[in-house]
């Protein structure tokens, strides 16, 4: 589903990604952890080309995003993204937030989009909030709405960029629940997160990133109980 080959990203002189190689299979849930500034978010943003890689290749669903002929907007439709700060559109109701891209990008008729939107809101437990504006919702509700918005484009892949980091502790569970459900339905997911419980329970694979490199990866049980790399041990000892 996703293949990343020797990916490098510079911000000016700053070498943020230093040669990332990563393969994610269809239906796989990969959780990426690592200290802040390690390049996790940048990697995620390079995958859907919100950031353009300095060098290297990203393939999604067999399509090479970097061969210069690809319509990046088409690719982004297949890769939904959920942000730390939700980034809901504040001037639109929750339902309109969800329906905007399907109607404008996919040219879906408005009735069909509304139907889809309502179904997705029900799925994330916000059926009664369709007419609300984002600022009227709690953080957890906003993030669930943002997940619904991404799902409305029927993506084959979902990218989560620290989806629970901006949330009050009591709201983290409801968002993780929605993500878990999604994983169980077979969605391919790459999740940057520090929710170790979620990683343990849901991830097929956990990856530690540090200083722009993938340090260690493995199935969660092995990764957490028997880390091989010193940097993994050091990082885990700090957060567990």
């Amino acid at each position: 589903m996703v293949k990343v080959k020797d990916l490098h990203k510079y911000f000016g002189d700053l070498h943020v990604l230093r040669g990332i190689n990563l393969k994610v299979e269809k239906g796989e849930v990969v959780v990426v952890i690592g200290p802040s500034g390690s390049g996790k978010s940048t990697l995620l943003r390079c995958i859907n080309h919100l950031e353009i890689p300095t060098s290297g290749e990203v393939h999604i669903d067999g399509v090479n995003l970097d061969d210069g002929t690809v319509d990046i907007n088409l690719i982004r439709q297949t890769a939904g993204m959920v942000f730390q700060q939700f980034n809901l559109f504040p001037h639109l109701t929750i339902l309109d937030n969800i329906c905007l891209a399907p109607t404008k990008v996919l040219k879906m008729p408005i009735e069909e989009a509304h139907e889809l939107g309502r179904a997705l809101l029900k799925k994330v437990g916000l059926a009664d909030k369709e007419a609300a504006y984002p600022h009227q919702l709690s953080g957890g509700q906003q993030q669930r709405a943002a997940i619904a918005r991404a799902l409305a484009m029927r993506p084959k892949l979902m990218l989560f960029d620290e989806p629970t980091s901006a949330l009050d502790p009591e709201m983290i569970g409801e968002v993780l629940m929605v993500m878990k459900e999604l994983a169980l339905e077979g969605m391919t997911m790459i999740v940057v997160s520090h929710e170790m419980g979620f990683a343990r329970e849901v991830a097929d694979r956990v990856i530690l990133m540090d200083e722009g490199l993938l340090i260690e990866e493995g199935p969660p049980r092995e990764f957490f109980s028997n880390p091989k790399h010193d940097r993994t041990k050091a990082f885990l000892s700090k957060i567990l």
Partner: peptide
Amino acid sequence: GQMEAARSLGMTYGHAMRYVILPQ
């Protein structure tokens, strides 16, 4: 983040401007 969210949904720059950025 508004532009990024719009672009991540597959909207073009023009669409994002017109429906997300400018109305705000």
